[in-house]
Structures are given as C-alpha cells and as structure tokens.
Write a protein that binds this DNA or RNA. Structure first.
Lengths: 246, 246
DNA sequence: CTATCTATCTGGTAATGACCACTGAAACCG
DNA sequence: CGGTTTCAGTGGTCATTACCAGATAGATAG
C-alpha cells in the first residue's frame, strides 16, 4: 500500500486517500478513539486539497471507520462496528465472513411461469412468460443451512445455465461480469415459519421446526427488479445480523 | 414549503435544497425515472453553487430518492424503495409506520446487576453495579406483539423513572431531549427461538410457539454502548423489514 | 482562587473555476 | 443508406478561497 496519493493513478485521489487511512486504522497504527490529524494537517501531509480530504473522510465516516466531532476533531471509531454499513451480500460472502465454508447443492434449474407473488415482486404482469428459477440447498461446512428459491427476470437474450453457475460460483459474480447487472439495492423481510414435511427432509430437521424465512427483492443499478429470493434458514443454525444507522 | 433557498434560514442551503427537491418528488411533480434538471441548470434555478447542488443530490441519492448516471443525468428513483435507508427506529415508530396503533404495558422497571451477556454487550466489567432494566410488553392495536427487555448504561447522575417513561412516551425521545444522548448506530441480530411457558402466558400464545428474537446494541454519538435490548416477537404477528444497499 | 472572556484550534458550509470521462445524438463520410 | 466520427451536455473529480460555528485552553478580571 503506497502512503502517498498519486495523481497518475486511475483511482480518484479521495479513494486513494481513504484506502491509506483505512489501512492505518485496520493495521492498528491508529487506535480506537484516537484523534487523527485535522483536515488542514492532512492537507499538508498528503498534498491534496481540503475538499478531497473531506470526501475521503465522508466515505470513512459512512463506512463507520471514523466519527467526527465539530470543534474537536476526527476520531477512529471503536472497531466493533467497523464492519459493513448494511451490506448487500450473497449467501456465499455471508458465510465466508463468518468463517464457515459455504457450499451448495443445485436441486433444480429451469424456466417456469412465475407465481403471482413473484410477479408482483418483480413488477411483471400476471400471468407472465416463463422466467429463470433456481432452487438450491445452501450448505455451511457441509451441512444444510437453508433452502433457497430464486427467480430472475433478465433482459432479453440473457441466459443463465447450470454450467454458467458452476463456472462463476456465485450468481452475483455472474450477473456482474457477464451480464453487467450490478445489484445495488434490495428490500428484505424476515419472518418465522414452520417447516413443511418436504422442507424438513431437505434440511434434515423435523417437520414443524421453526425456520427463518427471508424474502428479498434485488434491484439493478437502474432500479429495475432483477431477482426475487426466498430463503428458508434453519432456525437452529442461522442468525441474521444487520447494522443500523440513523 | 418555500421553493427558493434562503441564505437567512438557520438550515444549511444544501439541506433546504434537498427538502425542496424531496417535496417535488414525493408530491408527484417529478415522476419516477424522470430526468431532473442537470446540476448546472439547478445552479441557475435555485441560485446556489454546484458544490451545494451536489451535496443536496448526494443526500437524496443516499436516501434512495434519486439515482445518477454518468453522462446521462440524474433521475427520480421508483418510489418503491423510497423508504428509509436502514433506519434506526423504535418499536413505537415502527408500528406507526405500519399503520398499527402502538401500545405498551410496563411489567417491571428497576436497577439490577446486569447478567454476563449484557455486560459484554455494553462493554462493562462483570460483575457490575446495578444498571437500569426495563421489561415491557409491546402491544399493536391492543394485542401483544412482543416482549421487550432493555438495559441502559447511562452516564453518572442520569436517572430514568417510570414517571419519565410515562411522560415522554418513547425512551428514545427521553434520551435525546433530557439526557442529550442521540442513538446513532446499532448492531442487530435476529434469530428464531421457541416460547417458554412464562413467555407464552405474557404473549398469549401456546408454549413452544416460534418467536423472532431480536437483540440490539445501540451506540451513542460518541460510539459508546448505551442500550441493550432483547425483543421476543410473536412469530405469527411480526415481520421484520430492512433495506440493504451496496 | 474562581469565574469569565478570548484567542485559536476544530469541523461545517459555501462559491468559483477548472478539467476529465462518459453518453448520446447530430453531423459526417464512405 | 449505413456505419463512423464528432461534439455538446452530463455527472465526477479536484484546487482554491472564504467565512461560520462548536470546543477548548489559557489569559484575564473579579
């Protein structure tokens, strides 16, 4: 990691500067609640203007790495909540962050006529021509964690096959790299249900066991609904975590 | 709502401008996906400089009201997700937003020695001197929705009594107005549990019914843990909603 | 010695000017 | 007519300058 801001770099200076400061924080050089150099000092240290400094600090503040106090200075946040803001992650990323080896078992993939509730979430007319449906068993360290059913409404001409899914590993990576669809926003709801016999078999639990049902609609960068996902998590295995800000 | 930006106002201009634009969007004057005036046009319309315009638009973009496309312009977001970002709300606010009349029944209030898990969340030594504990039954339209146990670690000399709670209605309002503690950040986890006999009686459900257990630690503006809350929601009555962004 | 004032830090807001990168449509050329 | 180039307009980045407002410590007056 360079410790100076290079005008020649492709990345904007404020992002470079944010990376440098983030590094100094996560490395432990700057301790929690420690006062960091003032904006005018940073101006001299890194030879960039104050608006740029402020843009970098805005970024770090939104990421929860620093907090500012008018008249006193800018401080390093206690690392506790330095994690994501309210992150949009895939199951795969989520598991890795918890130190659990993610896995999956493809149960079914194909084109189906979307049911009414799915049409509503994806803002489609009902009935609607078949769209992509994927049903997967999600594994954590080899044992079943959840049962996921996803529907994708893709632009015309786009296709996802089982082979693609195999190759990219993550649907999100596939969406981004191949189809240039970048999920940027999602609405999620969580509620409690009880396992049906069929679900119980797949998840290797008793019928009637409590499950955490997550429903998520994901939107592309143009705010079009792209994906609707239902995941049934085993109540005894899974904890949902979020970070809230005001 | 004034439609010009006044330098004399107490509020910063970029916030005034954001309010004006927000009003034009929520009133329906600006339709979803409609192109709004360019930053240079807004500069003339509202007689403020471009950095101020951009600050206002940054705000609206983070709030999900508009989205920007490099080289094309700024557009109104479809209102679907115009709701809060990932809001830090109290049970009271939450219920009101759903159109349900919130209510509560105070079960117990007093100073107790915090158990180990509470100490850990509030970053206190264990054992620790007694701190404030409040146990309440949360009602929605008069029927039990959840059972809430809260612990507060307040600065020396601060006190909360049952009378205070009655007067202010919301603990958060009390914290802000009386103690000048503004909750700004919280970590929340959600998981599934089953009702114990005691809990079942209070919530008027059968023992063993599935519950949604929410645990939240709230931090003040100085990132000190202030509050630790456990809420057991009735699984058949409550749905948790969140908005995620990347 | 205490309480107040003030100088001077801090971050917050704002204007001005400049250049870059991306987009899309009009103008151009084969 | 069809494909290409050009260019004007958009948001993205950055420097410079200025003043305001909250916080704090040292100077000052009581």
């Amino acid at each position: 990691m360079p410790d100076t801001v290079q005008p020649t770099e492709v990345l904007p200076r404020y992002i470079q500067l944010a990376s440098i400061l983030r590094g100094r924080i996560t490395s432990g050089e700057l301790q929690p609640n420690q006062l960091i150099p003032s904006e005018r000092q940073l101006e001299e240290i890194y030879a960039v203007s104050r608006p740029t400094i402020r843009q970098a600090l805005d970024l770090l503040e939104r990421q929860g790495l620093v907090y500012r106090a008018h008249g006193r200075g800018t401080f390093v946040s206690p690392q506790k909540l330095q994690k994501p803001i309210s992150e949009l992650t895939s199951f795969t990323e989520d598991m890795k962050r918890r130190g659990i080896e993610p896995g999956q078992k493809l149960l079914e993939i194909g084109m189906v006529e979307p049911p009414r509730d799915v049409c509503r979430q994806l803002e489609l007319a009902y009935p609607h021509a078949p769209i992509l449906r994927i049903e997967r068993l999600r594994l954590g360290d080899g044992t079943p964690m959840g049962l996921q059913t996803s529907y994708y409404h893709l632009p015309d001409g786009c296709e996802i096959t089982a082979a693609d899914l195999e190759q990219y590993g993550s649907i999100y990576r596939l969406l981004e790299d191949k189809l240039h669809i970048i999920p940027t926003e999602a609405g999620e709801t969580l509620e409690v249900t009880l396992a049906t016999p069929a679900e119980a078999v797949l998840l290797q639990i008793k019928p009637g066991s409590p499950l955490l049902l997550s429903e998520r609609t994901t939107y592309s960068q143009e705010r079009r609904p792209v994906e609707f996902v239902k995941i049934l998590y085993r109540g005894d295995r899974y904890t949902y975590t979020a970070k809230l800000t005001r």
